[in-house]
Write a protein that binds this DNA or RNA. Structure first.
Lengths: 334, 334
DNA sequence: CCGCATCACTTAATCGATAAACTACGCCAA
DNA sequence: TTGGCGTAGTTTATCGATTAAGTGATGCGG
């Protein structure tokens, strides 16, 4: 029945102390479970705290302890379906560990990344999970101020949690061979990005042992295809097109649809990531799945270990990827 | 060249004061632009502040002033493409106003909404933007503690910012009539939700003046269609199917594709919201667009006005929706 | 040349909490 | 009886800021 003081501010430790007739310290001891306080007293204090609707002032706590139990999350672009999938498990795991998440959308821009991080630090976050928009180490100058964990993209100087693109791509190659695909076309991501390179190399290394790469083209990680790619797709003679991520794959499917080519009857299409759209496309897009929830969970766990003082040498976690088979990938061997 | 003290904590006001040989107050005055300080002194203080890499401790500020310059954002589900579109402009507008955003994903659950909000309050947010997951007023007991603005869904007791579903639906009806559609089927959202009712009523009120609603079925706001809807779509004899949101519409399109029915040649499909998937579907999904960016901007603006003390009577903002014409909607009049 | 503003700062109180050091009391063993 | 110890609290300093009130020069009008 939380009785609320109509006129005034939120109740403080002192308010409770006064009501009960003890010192603020005692109240603090009870509410935090530190210090020795009698059972009777404890009960009374807890009761008035509840009655007053007391809620600890985290800012004050933070000033005293130097810890805010808040972490920052810097993402390149919330409207890109990929990142919310990362954000959700992170927020959840953080919340469960008693941490809140300050969100920054960097708009894929290193300057925003920097100023966002700067702001996070001023707000006293205990740590930062950073999903870098580019390969540029835009937080270099902040290093050492708080723990930072890079997610999705391993960065040389940071703890990181990412998916094993190379391994996932190898698996994909194996699977395609097993399905009877022996000649494929590839739309890679920008070769300046290591994740794009890993995906390409993993696939090529394995696939070229038993099949051939009919053609290979670069495209940005977006649904819009550049002219070269469109042309390559047009005169494609391979049985499948491997795309460096789902957005590209969806772009390819859309383009094929426009050309009147049936997927997967005439050509199969495969992507990477397994963003939500992939399963909703028609036909469903076969794709090498990112383990979103584990990525988020591991990132928070690693970060919190650092926050709590673990300073083991740099850790670079790599999680397995697995193929989600769907309608866009045809089995040629029957 | 930010020289950082290797051993120690972050520099404080006192550290600067000591270096320069003045009191902390003076430093505070300079850095905040309050109080009268000489030009020469100002320069020196600013210089050493920069040199030390000083960054104000927001928690301390918060204790003193009672304001954290932080707002909470409670969303039902980050993996639903709708909500990140709201989150992005909110985060951006907040950041520009000097506020940070604490993100809570309520998992569409009123209990989480409540405990999330509770946590936000403990952390001292100055206000909350709340996108209610249901029609339940789960924050009722927190009312009055901080300003709360409801977004997307107008709630009787809160300031709110939402799209004018009724008007948007009317517009859509008009447009369909103009394109020569005179008989349509409808998949509405759950009639227990006011937004679903508004969309239905707006459409029906206008459309039935010059056309007929061939059939009408309810479905949850999801891509999965219930059996009744699938059946209705199957034996559909109308020229267009109006869906209460894009997810339903995509579900319908997917189902039609499975049945071998061509969109829009045999039947047109229209949705509501304009989530990113809509434009990426094949064909592009025509839809009544939510003004995402304006919604976010207005919500933050309204909230910050409240935070800064404006206590005008409750405000309920309604923003216009407009049709995004795309491939899934055919013009019958040529 | 007095008195009063104004300028440029400083002192000290304060926000809401935590934590080290201290007090007061009771109990038991030597 | 005294000393030691554990229990149940209190006192007080402190975190890093803001802000009201105060201080000592200087300038200026009368």
């Amino acid at each position: 029945m939380t009785k609320r003081n109509p006129s005034a501010k939120r109740p403080t430790l002192q308010d409770i102390a006064r009501q009960v007739g003890v010192s603020a310290t005692t109240v603090s001891y009870v509410l935090n479970g530190t210090g020795a306080v009698g059972a009777e007293m404890s009960k009374r204090i807890r009761a008035t705290a509840k009655q007053l609707g007391y809620r600890a002032n985290q800012a004050a706590k933070a000033v005293r302890t130097g810890k805010t139990r808040t972490v920052g999350l810097i993402l390149p672009d919330l409207t890109n379906p990929f990142f919310p999938l990362l954000a959700q498990p992170i927020q959840m795991a953080a919340y469960e560990a008693g941490y809140a998440v300050l969100l920054i959308d960097s708009h894929g821009n290193t300057d925003w990344e920097r100023s966002g991080a700067e702001d996070l630090l001023a707000r006293g976050v205990d740590g930062i999970i950073w999903c870098p928009a580019t390969e540029v180490d835009s937080l270099a100058t902040l290093k050492g101020e708080v723990p930072i964990v890079a997610i999705d993209r391993p960065l040389p100087d940071y703890d990181s949690v990412s998916a094993d693109s190379y391994g996932g791509a190898r698996q994909l190659a194996e699977h395609l061979l097993a399905l009877g695909h022996h000649s494929v076309g590839m739309v890679t991501g920008p070769m300046s990005l290591s994740s794009a390179r890993m995906r390409r190399d993993g696939f090529v290394d394995r696939f070229s042992k038993a099949g051939t790469i009919a053609w290979e083209m670069e495209n940005s990680f977006s649904i819009n295809l550049c002219a070269d790619v469109r042309e390559a797709v047009c005169k494609n003679r391979a049985s499948a097109i491997i795309c460096a991520n789902d957005l590209i794959a969806l772009g390819v499917m859309r383009f094929l649809y426009g050309q009147g080519a049936r997927v997967p009857d005439e050509v199969s299409v495969v992507g990477f990531d397994d963003i939500s759209w992939a399963s909703l496309a028609t036909p469903g897009l076969a794709t090498v799945r990112q383990p979103f929830a584990p990525l988020g969970k591991q990132a928070i766990e690693l970060l919190l270990r650092r926050v709590e003082g673990d300073n083991a040498p740099r850790i670079s976690l790599s999680l397995d990827m697995h193929l989600s088979q769907r309608g866009s990938l045809r089995n040629l061997s029957n």
